[in-house]
Design a protein around this nucleic acid. Sequence first.
DNA 1: CTGAAAGCGCTTACAG
DNA 2: CTGAAAGCGCTTACAG
Lengths: 349, 349
Amino acid sequence: MDSVGQSVSGKRKITIRDVAKHAGISYQTVSRVINDSESVAPETRDRILKAIDELNYRPSVAARALNSNRTNVIAVATPFDSDNLFEDLNLLQIIHGIDREAARHDYSLLLSTQRSVEEPFSPYQRLLNRQLADGMIVSGETVAEEGIHRVIERGYPVVIIGYNQLGVPCVHSDDETGAFKAGGHLLNLGHRKIAVITGPRLLLAVQARERGFARAFNEHGLDGTPSLVAEGDFTIRSGYAAMARLGVHFGEYSALFVHNDRMAIGAMHWLTEHGYTVPHDVSIVGFDDITTAELQSPALTTVRSPSMMLGQKAAEILFAILDGQALNTSTVTLDTELILRDSTAPVQA
Amino acid sequence: MDSVGQSVSGKRKITIRDVAKHAGISYQTVSRVINDSESVAPETRDRILKAIDELNYRPSVAARALNSNRTNVIAVATPFDSDNLFEDLNLLQIIHGIDREAARHDYSLLLSTQRSVEEPFSPYQRLLNRQLADGMIVSGETVAEEGIHRVIERGYPVVIIGYNQLGVPCVHSDDETGAFKAGGHLLNLGHRKIAVITGPRLLLAVQARERGFARAFNEHGLDGTPSLVAEGDFTIRSGYAAMARLGVHFGEYSALFVHNDRMAIGAMHWLTEHGYTVPHDVSIVGFDDITTAELQSPALTTVRSPSMMLGQKAAEILFAILDGQALNTSTVTLDTELILRDSTAPVQA
DNA sequence: CTGAAAGCGCTTACAG
DNA sequence: CTGAAAGCGCTTACAG
């Protein structure tokens, strides 16, 4: 085809002027067609579209960004601990949801990870200071509020997937009600002594789950304080470790509520390893409903969090803000659902 | 601070000219300092760096991209089937490896997913036609070779994580030797009748694993044809389904080699569900060593694929090409390692 | 070692 | 409805 003038490294560029010449019109009008802006004579428009097609013209993102201050890219900041990232199926789902919505708006996704524990702000710094993206979605409640603040100060919209007290718009699942359902389920099965493996207790999501769980007890006229509590960090490993700590007191409780599925999997692993049987020796309820929850032996009863929808909603809000159509302070709470499987059973007599 | 003139939506821009004025020098010299190019008097450089720091200046990526034809972004194209993407821990590790290397070069990662089954080329089209990235890493051997071709024709470097016959540089694990090790292990345990659950057999990676497995038999003076074969698509679900198909003939084999861990997990799930015990009834070896392999009951014996390193190597090659330092046709093969756990045992008498 | 000029590919008012 | 001008924020030769 057009092999002439196309060196190996040369990304030969067809510009707006080429299209204009081909269509016999000024390049400004071509720009109008590209941007669907103002009025262009239908006949002219067709001629230009035909030229664009024939020349296989694509506008330069860089040039457009330079003029319009829009990059057509949104950034996704991922959680701090990259070890955590490795096993996080939830995150994949969230990203998928974001990507879906981004596609609808013809946007692309820039992945922004933390470079090291030493520079917690790097995802924010790198992306937005360099104006790589039009806005940012922060996946997960975070401690680096200062970093988020800087981004907002620069005028970039930010949406958080999780809770925050900054007044930043956010999307999260209804953790309190979810935990309430988990507690109610165990209570209905006759369990009264229930241990809990929580996520990091400084997180608002974790506090919400603790509240909801206690409320289930209260509504049964019971004290909402769990028999035993161990804290984890949402990783499989930490669930295993938390279970090891609880295990010493085995027998003091007949059921276990774990704040996410990964830790529940870790806990079940410890139990199996030590000769205990789920749900015979202890009933377990998780949280999230990741793909592998169903595949545990026994299949894990859990509270389903709508991860993909969380991502999609967050992106929707971000785009609404970018279009000037949304308040800067919306909070969306998505419903959870109790998924009954085989890891819970009536309390043993 | 500089609150004046900074509206809510206004991303106030500090330009190279501001820095120049602040430092009392021409803006061209500022550009030189930013780019570490040519010679600048040390004293001048210091003055400029100080000004950059004081004004908190960040160069505009768009403007730089427009001039230099470099975006400082590389794209990662993810696999076709997005259901597949959901559960793919391997992919997360690969992406992490790429991101790591990108960070070293001060590059960012653009995630490019398929929009729908109908437009398999979309990841290629969208990103590169619009010149959003300097190059592309394709994660996984793919059928959309046409899409890759178009990208290459445009002059963009591409690195594939997986095999290809296009002459495109690629990185993959030593699948043949890995499968050879898996086969040897089972043979050493006394197994002679071994079933296999393969990945899609049109993939070169799958063919390499089949070859390596057969070679293990041959070196033992045995016929390399597996007792029974079922094909899956690497998903947990397909492993479950493949096992269901094999299960009818249960007893005709004492061991199972599964082409990836996710399918192995699916297969184990089927076995447990139907009352069989691993490794008592059947020994199982997987492939990949994803995080959760260790957490199965029993813990899965598997061939470890260096996923993160795969991503990192691919990025290294891409950057080498971008810097004009690499042939356009390198292939890197990374070693695998047999990880012995509890899902394999000597054949029953 | 540093400055002045031209231009990257587009968009945005501004005229007509 | 369409064209000419100016400019987005930089980089790249080209002079000095």
